[in-house]
Simulated scan of single mutants.
Amino acid sequence: MIRIGHNPNTNMLPMFHFLDKNHPLIEAVIAEPTGHNAMLAAGEIDMAPISAFSYGEHWKDYAILPNLSVSTKGRVGSIILFSKVPLNDLDGLTIALTDASATSVNLTKIILHHYLGVIPHYLTMSSNLQEMFLVADAALLIGDAAIQSALLQPDCYIYDLGEEWLKLTGCSMTYAVWAFPKSLLSEREQEIRIIHKLLIEAKVKALCNMDDVILTCQTMLGGTRSFWAGYFAQFNYGLDSSLECGLNKYLGLCFELGLLPSRPVLEFWPKE
């Protein structure tokens, strides 16, 4: 059996909605992205859609499953910096960072430090916009917490970090990749191949049946069908050469800014 990290956020539904979680090879373990990052590193799960940044931390030990990711070119809709002031005015102020993400936290730092020359103070806390705004001038939220807060139309500046990244770099942004320890290959190679095939099939089925996915999202968080259709239209759940280029740009900047100790290399398995 392969212990698979199951991310419950709506942006991951096209990965999981049609995946047979009762398959004899699958044991699903539910957690937020940072939880899966830590579990995979600790050997508590075998495979997960982890933060792209976490892959960068462990790239020498991990392999990436091909043609699976959570990516956008531009707007993402669920990685949002809510701010009381414009981005350029955050220098020296305080930003509350979600404790549920690694990729988005470091994307925020790249955008502010590297591109805008803005150096704020940071604190990390649970994802609650009202509580964050009590102690900070801006708040980074991801996933369903970001969507719910944005739907309430708070009286503040709202920055979609996918849009900001595209404006600054011209690149796509990959937020999560499916990864597993390369050490698993020595004894579980065939099982990994089977799981990879099941994940691809589930993704394809979801993308061909998005009405089912959208109905589930409405049940979870509300919102109109058109809102969710527009939300999912911006996502790419594959990982082609164009998306690889954006991912390499992000990981390279993380290294250059000292956020990662070495420059990551993308290694895929099974080879296509």
Results as ranks from 00 to 15, higher is better:
residue 2 I to G: 11
residue 6 H to L: 14
residue 11 N to L: 04
residue 16 F to L: 13
residue 19 L to G: 04
residue 20 D to E: 14
residue 22 N to P: 05
residue 22 N to Y: 10
residue 24 P to C: 09
residue 27 E to H: 08
residue 28 A to P: 10
residue 29 V to I: 14
residue 32 E to I: 00
residue 35 G to Y: 01
residue 35 G to D: 08
residue 36 H to C: 12
residue 40 L to M: 08
residue 40 L to K: 08
residue 42 A to V: 01
residue 43 G to D: 11
residue 44 E to N: 07
residue 48 A to M: 07
residue 56 G to C: 06
residue 57 E to S: 10
residue 58 H to S: 10
residue 60 K to E: 13
residue 62 Y to P: 08
residue 64 I to S: 14
residue 65 L to A: 15
residue 65 L to N: 09
residue 68 L to N: 10
residue 71 S to A: 15
residue 72 T to S: 12
residue 73 K to H: 08
residue 74 G to C: 02
residue 74 G to N: 00
residue 76 V to Y: 03
residue 78 S to F: 03
residue 78 S to D: 12
residue 83 S to W: 08
residue 83 S to G: 13
residue 86 P to V: 06
residue 88 N to K: 12
residue 89 D to L: 13
residue 91 D to M: 05
residue 94 T to V: 11
residue 94 T to C: 14
residue 95 I to G: 07
residue 97 L to D: 03
residue 98 T to G: 08
residue 100 A to I: 01
residue 101 S to H: 02
residue 101 S to T: 14
residue 102 A to P: 05
residue 102 A to F: 06
residue 103 T to F: 06
residue 104 S to N: 13
residue 106 N to G: 05
residue 106 N to I: 12
residue 106 N to A: 12
residue 111 I to N: 03
residue 112 L to W: 11
residue 114 H to Y: 13
residue 114 H to M: 07
residue 115 Y to E: 04
residue 118 V to T: 10
residue 119 I to P: 05
residue 119 I to C: 14
residue 121 H to D: 14
residue 128 N to C: 09
residue 129 L to K: 01
residue 130 Q to A: 15
residue 133 F to S: 09
residue 136 A to E: 09
residue 136 A to Q: 06
residue 136 A to V: 02
residue 138 A to N: 07
residue 144 D to V: 00
residue 144 D to T: 01
residue 144 D to G: 01
residue 145 A to M: 00
residue 146 A to W: 01
residue 148 Q to E: 14
residue 151 L to K: 13
residue 153 Q to V: 06
residue 153 Q to I: 06
residue 155 D to H: 14
residue 155 D to S: 15
residue 156 C to R: 01
residue 156 C to T: 09
residue 156 C to E: 07
residue 157 Y to P: 01
residue 161 L to Q: 02
residue 162 G to N: 03
residue 163 E to P: 02
residue 166 L to D: 00
residue 168 L to K: 04
residue 170 G to A: 00
residue 176 A to S: 13
residue 177 V to S: 13
residue 180 F to A: 14
residue 180 F to S: 13
residue 180 F to K: 12
residue 181 P to A: 12
residue 186 S to G: 06
residue 186 S to A: 05
residue 186 S to N: 07
residue 190 Q to L: 14
residue 197 K to H: 14
residue 197 K to I: 03
residue 201 E to V: 07
residue 203 K to P: 05
residue 205 K to E: 15
residue 207 L to I: 11
residue 208 C to M: 15
residue 208 C to P: 04
residue 209 N to C: 08
residue 209 N to I: 02
residue 209 N to P: 09
residue 209 N to H: 15
residue 211 D to P: 06
residue 212 D to S: 13
residue 212 D to W: 07
residue 213 V to W: 05
residue 213 V to L: 15
residue 214 I to F: 15
residue 216 T to H: 15
residue 217 C to L: 05
residue 218 Q to P: 06
residue 220 M to S: 11
residue 221 L to D: 10
residue 225 R to A: 07
residue 229 A to P: 05
residue 230 G to M: 03
residue 232 F to D: 08
residue 233 A to I: 00
residue 233 A to F: 08
residue 234 Q to P: 00
residue 234 Q to E: 02
residue 238 G to A: 06
residue 239 L to A: 09
residue 239 L to W: 05
residue 242 S to G: 02
residue 243 L to I: 09
residue 243 L to A: 04
residue 245 C to V: 02
residue 248 N to Y: 02
residue 255 F to Q: 05
residue 257 L to E: 15
residue 259 L to K: 11
residue 259 L to D: 07
residue 260 L to M: 11
residue 262 S to I: 02
residue 263 R to D: 12
residue 264 P to R: 02
residue 270 P to Y: 11
residue 271 K to R: 13
